[in-house]
């Protein structure tokens, strides 16, 4: 094991971290909005919207992400004249935006199911109680439904975040030089697959570890009602006296 080489590799790979995080968080942010829309459609009770949401989730969860990326990045090139006419070509020409679009559509499908689970787990009594107090519509959603659903969905959404960080590695196949892209280049240059793999793997593990901790902290912060009440200070002091 050549530690000097690994250190050098570490520094090279570190330069890919911003792009990896950029891809992950941009698509997660857009994806969350999309997922909320899809989840609301799925629960709307309108048959057309429900069918659309179901179909959407089936298509994007049932086919490989790489196929979706290729379909957008290479596939839409087939309609270049039309896209140019519509002024969209500058968007679909960029591998960055194609990756973001594919990742967003993908996480939208997965996260919509997570959100739906969270929304459906809101106890009916709580909603009834809120209605009895005179809340309705958006106020009810903002004060009662959303906070409860968020708490329910957070653990699963945390794993979705990890999956997204892992999924950004596929962007390397369409020339994005994020961590995996740089790693692949280094491996094919040096043929030292094991060392590069260890370093790149460690970087991903550290990133994912930090994300898990952040989600856990958020969960803790959002559920004060589940924690043991803090021991009153006075009694602690009383022991000393």
């Amino acid at each position: 094991m050549d530690f000097e080489f690994m250190q050098e590799t570490f520094l090279r790979l570190l330069s890919g971290v911003p792009l990896t995080l950029n891809l992950a968080f941009t698509s997660v942010a857009f994806g969350a909005v999309l997922a909320m829309l899809i989840a609301l459609m799925r629960m709307s009770g309108v048959r057309v919207l429900e069918a659309f949401a179901k179909g959407y989730v089936f298509v994007f969860r049932g086919s490989p992400l790489l196929v979706q990326i290729f379909l957008i990045y290479y596939g839409l090139g087939q309609f270049r004249p039309t896209l140019q006419e519509w002024g969209l070509w500058s968007f679909f020409r960029e591998p960055y935006w194609c990756a973001i679009l594919a990742l967003t559509l993908n996480t939208g499908a997965y996260a919509s199911e997570i959100f739906r689970g969270g929304l459906q787990a809101v106890p009916a009594q709580q909603v009834e109680a809120a209605r009895a107090c005179g809340m309705s519509g958006f106020l009810l959603f903002r004060r009662i439904t959303f906070p409860i659903a968020l708490r329910q969905a957070l653990p699963a959404y945390g794993s979705e975040l990890i999956l997204m960080v892992k999924a950004t590695s596929l962007a390397s196949i369409i020339t994005m030089m994020e961590i995996t892209g740089i790693a692949a280049k280094l491996i094919s240059q040096t043929f030292r697959a094991v060392e590069v793999f260890i370093v790149a793997g460690a970087i991903y593990l550290i990133l994912n570890f930090i994300i898990t901790r952040l989600i856990m902290a958020l969960e803790w912060w959002l559920s004060p009602h589940l924690r043991h009440p803090p021991v009153p200070k006075a009694s602690v002091e009383a022991v000393h006296v």
Binding site: I162, K166, A167, S169, A184, A193, V194, F197, Y204
Partner: peptide, 22 residues
Amino acid sequence: TTVLRGIPDLLVIYLFYFGGSA
């Protein structure tokens, strides 16, 4: 299980393809 579920599959494939060849 922690390591294999925390790193991208593509990286594992590269490891076995290039590492295996080496």
